[in-house]
C-alpha cells in the first residue's frame, strides 16, 4: 500500500504539506494580483504615486537618510546598556523582601507604575523641553542627552517588569536549595536566581529592544536631526512624501531581521522547555 521506505504517516504528511503549500501560493497570488490590478484604478492613485513613490526624490534623499540613521543607531547603542542596568536595578529593588529596604521597593514600584503609564512621546517632550528649561548651559542642555534620558526612563520601567517576571518565574525550591547550603539571600539572588531569570527573559527583552530601536525616532520631536527629522526636512524641500517612505524602508531593513531573530529565539526556547510542538 505504502511506498517502500515511507511510513503511512510520512506519506500522509507529505501529501498534507504539498496541499498546504499549493493553497498558500494560490491565495497569495490572488491577493497580490487584486491589489496590483485594483489600486491603480482608484481616482487618486496617480497623485499618490507621484508624492509617495517618486523615484527621483527617493534617489536624491536616500543616502542622506541613511547617514541620519547612524544617529538613531548611536542613540540606541548608548541607551540600551543604561536601560539594562537601570531596569535590572529596579527589578532587584522590587524583589527585595527585607523590611529595612521597603522604601526602595516602594520607590521601584512607583517608578515603574509612573513610567509605564505615560506614553513614551510625552516623557520625551516633558523631559526634553522641561529639564533644559532650567537654564542649563552647554553641553547639559543637549536634546540628545535629555531625549536619551527620557528613553532610558521609559524603557527601563518596561525592562524592569520583564526582569521581575523572570525573577518570579524561578521556583521557590531553588531559593530553598541555595539557602539550605548557607548562602545568604544576596548570594542566592546573585548566583542562583538572577542567572536563571535572565536566561528566561532574553526573548521578551529582545522584543522591547526592537521597539526601542523604532522609538528612538521620537527624539526628533525635541530637535536632534536623526532620520525622521531629516525625512521631514527633505519632505518640505521637495514638497514630496517619498522621504518618509525611504525612512520606513531603512527602519524595516533593521527591524525585520531583528524580529525574525527574536522569533527564532522564542521558538527555540519553546522547543527546549516543552519538548514537542502541539499542532
Amino acid at each position: 500500500m505504502s511506498q517502500p521506505g515511507v511510513t503511512r504517516r510520512q506519506a500522509f504528511e507529505r501529501r498534507q504539506k504539498r496541499r498546504s503549500v499549493l493553497i498558500a501560493l494560490t491565495s497569495t497570488v490572488i491577493v497580490i494580483g487584486l491589489v496590483v490590478a485594483l489600486v491603480p484604478q482608484t481616482p487618486g492613485w496617480y497623485k499618490v504615486k507621484r508624492s509617495f513613490f517618486n523615484g527621483e526624490v527617493f534617489n536624491d534623499t536616500f543616502s542622506k537618510l541613511l547617514s541620519a540613521f547612524v544617529k538613531d543607531i548611536q542613540i540606541f547603542l548608548w541607551c540600551a546598556p543604561c536601560i539594562l542596568i537601570w531596569g535590572m536595578t529596579l527589578a532587584v529593588c522590587r524583589s527585595v523582601r527585607t523590611p529595612a529596604l521597603f522604601p526602595l521597593r516602594l520607590f521601584a514600584t512607583a517608578y515603574t507604575d509612573i513610567f509605564r503609564g505615560i506614553p513614551v512621546i510625552l516623557t520625551i517632550l516633558l523631559v526634553g523641553f522641561g529639564i533644559p528649561g532650567l537654564g542649563l548651559s552647554r553641553p547639559w542642555n543637549s536634546p540628545y542627552l535629555w531625549g536619551s534620558v527620557a528613553l532610558v526612563l521609559a524603557y527601563s520601567s518596561y525592562v524592569a517588569e520583564v526582569f521581575r517576571a523572570g525573577i518570579e518565574s524561578v521556583h521557590e525550591s531553588q531559593r530553598a536549595g541555595a539557602r539550605s547550603l548557607g548562602l545568604s539571600s544576596g548570594q542566592t539572588l546573585q548566583f542562583v536566581i538572577l542567572p536563571q531569570a535572565v536566561r528566561r527573559v532574553i526573548p521578551p527583552l529582545m522584543n522591547d529592544f526592537v521597539s526601542l530601536q523604532k522609538d528612538v525616532a521620537l527624539i526628533s520631536l525635541i530637535g536632534p536631526i536623526e532620520i525622521l527629522r531629516q525625512a521631514g526636512i527633505d519632505k518640505s524641500k521637495y514638497a514630496n512624501f517619498t522621504p518618509y517612505v525611504g525612512a520606513a524602508i531603512i527602519f524595516l531593513l533593521l527591524t525585520i531581521p531583528e524580529t525574525r531573530f527574536v522569533d527564532h529565539l522564542m521558538t527555540r526556547e519553546r522547543r527546549r522547555t516543552s519538548g514537542t510542538a502541539v499542532r
Binding site: 525550591s173 536549595g177 541555595a178 539550605s180 547550603l181 548557607g182 548562602l183 545568604s184 542567572p195 536563571q196
Partner: peptide
Amino acid sequence: DPYRRRIGMVFQNFNLFPHMTVLENIAL
C-alpha cells in the same frame, strides 16, 4: 546562615541549580 552551614538538607525534588554543571553545583 551560620547554623544552616552545619545542617545539610536534601530535598524530594533535588533542587539542583539547572544553569550550573554538576561540579559547579557542588562547589558553589
